[in-house]
Design a protein around this nucleic acid. Sequence first.
DNA 1: CGCGGGCTTGACTCACTTCAAGTTGTGTGG
DNA 2: CCACACAACTTGAAGTGAGTCAAGCCCGCG
Lengths: 242, 242
Amino acid sequence: LSHYSDLSNSDRTILQRFEQDEHSYQAGEKVHRSDDVVKHLYIVKEGWLYSYTDLADGRRHIVRIHHPGDVLGIPEVAFDRATMSLQAANNVVLCPFPKAALAGFITTAPRLTALLFSLAMRDQVVLADQLRAIARMNASERVSFLLMDLISRLRIADTQVTNEFHLPLNQHEIGDCLGLTNVYVSKTLRLLEERKLIDRDGQDITLIDEPGLIEMSGFVNRYTRLDTNWFPALNATMAKSA
Amino acid sequence: LSHYSDLSNSDRTILQRFEQDEHSYQAGEKVHRSDDVVKHLYIVKEGWLYSYTDLADGRRHIVRIHHPGDVLGIPEVAFDRATMSLQAANNVVLCPFPKAALAGFITTAPRLTALLFSLAMRDQVVLADQLRAIARMNASERVSFLLMDLISRLRIADTQVTNEFHLPLNQHEIGDCLGLTNVYVSKTLRLLEERKLIDRDGQDITLIDEPGLIEMSGFVNRYTRLDTNWFPALNATMAKSA
DNA sequence: CGCGGGCTTGACTCACTTCAAGTTGTGTGG
DNA sequence: CCACACAACTTGAAGTGAGTCAAGCCCGCG
C-alpha cells in the first residue's frame, strides 16, 4: 500500500502483517465517534470514509476524506480519546492494528517511522491548504479545489485514473467539507458545468478543464513526491535486505 | 523547553545541544519564503512568529502563530521546499538545527521521536479545530476561538499567565488568521468588548469572561495533556538514566 | 508640527444562507 | 406495472453577515 519510498524487506513484512486483519462497515456506518476511547489505527483497504466534527448547533464540518491506502487515526495518537468522528461514505473494509504497535515501529523500523512521519506531515500541509481555501476563497474556487484534491489522491494509488471519477458524497456532505450549504453546492456545480470546467452524470464527475480548475483554486499537488533524502539509511538497524 | 513527558537524560542533552545555536530576527523580518529550500528546523526561544501563504490575488492566510517553545518547520520535512512563508511578528530569537538531525533522533532517541511525533499530531488536531471554526463559525465566534487558543498556548509555557496577555498582531494580521478583513476584526473586537467578554488596552487583551468565550467558540483545549502511554519504554535503547 | 500606520465608523454592496416549492430518480409494495 | 414514498437535487425569492469603500481619528515618531 505504500509506494513512496524504498523500504527494507523487514519493513514490508511488518506492513503486510497488519493487513491480515479485516473489518467491514456499511455505507453510513460510524467507525467511532468523537470522544470514544480508540485503541486502534486503521489502514483503508476499500471504500471511502470521512472524519468530521459536530458543532453545538448541529452543523458539522468534514475535515478529511479518506481513500484506500490511507492510514487513519494518526492524529489521535496524541490523545487518548478520538477528536473526531469517523464515518463510512460507502461500503468499506478496514485493517485495524493496535496503537501500541507504533512504539514498536519507532524502536525497530526507522525508515518506516520516517515514512509514517512524513506522510503525517504531508497531511498537515494539505490541511493548511484547505484552511487557506476555506478562509479566503469563494464557492467556485473551493469546489474546484476539492475536486482537484480528490482526483490527485485517486491518482496516487491508481495511475490509470483519467479525468473521470465516482464521487460517493451527496451535496450536503460536499458542503460540509467546504463550509457551504447543500443548496449553494448545487448552484456552484451547475455553474462549473455551464462554464465547461466539469461534466456530471449522477455521482460521476468528469474534469473537462483541469488547468482551468487548478488556476481557479490555486491547487498545489502535494501528493506527487515526498522528500525522503533525510530518511535514516536503509542499513541503520537492519540486518537483511540487499 | 519540553515539559510534556519524562525524557531520558540523553534525550535532554540532545535537546540542549540544539539550543546552543541562536539567530535573531527583527519584527516583520521573513525567516524564509514559500518555495525556499529549507534545510533547518527551528526552536523558538523568544518572540512570536507566524506561518502564512499568499493567494494569487494578493490576499494571504496566516495558518499558524508560533510561540516560544514551539518547533518550527516540522511539516516541511515531507517536502524539499517550504510550503509556507515564515515571518517574525515581533523581535525573535530562533535556535536552528539541521533537518538531517531528525534521522538521528529516529535511530537513537525513541522517546524523543515519539514526543516529536505526538506534538506534530497535536498540531494537526489543532489545525482541524481551526478549520471547523473558520468553515462554520461567524466572526465573533472565530475571534473568541483565536483568543482562547492563544492564551491556552501561553499557559503551556507559563502557568502564571492570568487572563491578560499581550497580542503583538495588528488587526489586519488577526483577520488573516481568521479569514476576515481588518475592518470586521475591529467591529468584532468592539462587540466582544461591549458584551463584557473581553477588555482591551492597546495590544493588551484581558479575557473577562472565559467561560463565555469558550461557549461561544466551542474551544477545546488540546494543550493540557498528551497521551504518552504508548511511548516506547525509557530503557528501550537507552543505557544511562535511573 | 506634520506625516503615516493602525484603528474606528458608517453607507453601500454582494456572496452566500434560508426558506420554500418544485423536479427527478429510485426502491418498494400492492 | 403502476402508485407511492422518500431522498437527493434544483430553482427562485428574500434576507443577512461580512466585504468594500471612504472618511475621520488617534497617536507615536521624525
